[in-house]
Amino acid sequence: MFKVENLDYSYTGDKLVLKDINFELFERDFLSIIGPNGSGKTTLLKTVSKILNSNATITINNEDIAQMSRKKISENISYFAQLKGNIADLSVYDTVMLGRYPYITGFLGKPSKKDKDIVNSALEKTQLEDLRDTYTSRLSGGQLQRVFLAQIIAQDTKIILLDEPTNHLDLKHQKELLEYIKTYAYKHNKIVIGVFHDLSIARKYSNKILLLGNGEISSYDVTNRVFDTDMINELYGLDIKKYMIEHYKEWT
């Protein structure tokens, strides 16, 4: 059970970019955070994962993450980011092994047998066994996202945060990635929180929606109900439903 209470955040100290955010999620929940540009979606994700510090009370199974070390937080929350240029050049295996960082102890940080088994199984699940010794600089965008997915699987956290993970991916890879995540999360009783620009993705994969407008919760409910409100049309300045139907008409 994951609970966020009284979350305010400001970059500069005066103007709040997030105001009074509260929500609670349970195992197998898939929450999509949506909202127009500048509504604070990614900021919310970063405050939830403590990349950015806020005074919110965030608890995982009633344990306050403010009391946790960085490693301990990362045993509970993992973060799947969108692809950005300029990444390090490690082998696929070593990159996935970084997901085990929170669990590895000792002077030189040598992975245990268990860590190796988990990484191998993550590579297997994401069909990366053949690429395990390939350097990340030689991978395509789709392959790279699979590597980071394997890293998330290896990190094995209760809560998985997704920050537009399908950006820069073609449709086939989008579909494969999201379906995999959804099935995986459901099967392993995870909680997923994703930020999505593409409302059709949010609608298709999540069971709950948090609609942000100017840093505040405009609507927080099960998926279908949020899309039926007028609030969403108001915020986006567009009749979403009408647009979607017209938009995809040609395909039918």
């Binding site: 990362s74 990159t95 890293q151």
Partner: peptide, 11 residues
């Protein structure tokens, strides 16, 4: 080497 946020996220 993968970036600061990404390093923080794995602990």
């Amino acid at each position: 080497a993968f970036g600061e946020e990404s390093a923080k996220n794995i602990g």
